[in-house]
Nucleic acid binder design. Sequence first.
DNA 1: TTAAAATAAATTGCACACAATTTAATTATG
DNA 2: CATAATTAAATTGTGTGCAATTTATTTTAA
Lengths: 153, 153
Amino acid sequence: MKNTTNDNAILTLGNELCFSLYACAKEVIKIYRKPLEKIGLTYTQYIVMMTLWQFGDMSVKDIGEKVYLDSGTLTPVIKKLEKSGFVKRQRIAEDERFVKIILTDKGLKLKEKASTIPQALEGNIYISYDEVVTVYNLLNKNLKGIKEGIETS
Amino acid sequence: MKNTTNDNAILTLGNELCFSLYACAKEVIKIYRKPLEKIGLTYTQYIVMMTLWQFGDMSVKDIGEKVYLDSGTLTPVIKKLEKSGFVKRQRIAEDERFVKIILTDKGLKLKEKASTIPQALEGNIYISYDEVVTVYNLLNKNLKGIKEGIETS
DNA sequence: TTAAAATAAATTGCACACAATTTAATTATG
DNA sequence: CATAATTAAATTGTGTGCAATTTATTTTAA
């Protein structure tokens, strides 16, 4: 549902919200840094691995659509994951333009270790469970709108 | 109000929320890129300028506290703003450790041009005004908690 | 059917973002 | 009062993030 009001107030507040998003994302990701380092991942590598754990082996393009990153960012990130031994890269025979990213045994095993990562948030969330649900749903609603807005532009 | 529940659900959902924050912040900031480029700013430079417009001349440290960035990021950003002629940098006589960032005439005049920047969000916000208010308040509440949690740790 | 258009990755260049360290200045303390 | 501890910026090194371009491959169309 696209907002088409002429009211300027939402734009001014949206501008403030943009900064809050920017700052809050950075600060929350900072909480993850140390525990992720212990299992040998950066946050960007972590969300790529989570995508592979959840959806299985997939192309760079498909990963990019899930994590909102393009090949310019993903190629070096995935190459580092390969160097760490968590994934393998393989051109797809049916269409050599695609590179399939495949979890190795080591990458698959990492999933268990990574299951403790969300505990880093313990004591670092200052809104209630219901409020987390509310923010989560509204951000995803907005994100979906932006994504579809770009696709159809 | 620190959340101290043992319930694991909020951590799992918090982990998902972290990604939504990360993705939503990136996508919204992307909307700003072109209009900001027209007035000669990046998003990071924009939030530094907004801080100076709102609070007046201040030190690198004080800017950092407002925008959640350290001198490692701010020093090169501010040097670019200086090269563009929007600010001047000046050591404070009373305490030479501090560098005061001072708006130039050009930097002050930019405020008017920048007042049109939030219009970039027109047609790109897919939640209602009330929902924007809700997300904004909850993110700031959480951000405040994290900030105070770090200060007192 | 083959040259043009489209597509997926990779590459390039620029701008952060941040931890860790260094430098310079100020304050605290024995 | 002199040295140690602290503090603010700057520097260094690594890792994104993205627009624009390039390369390789596949699809479309004349």
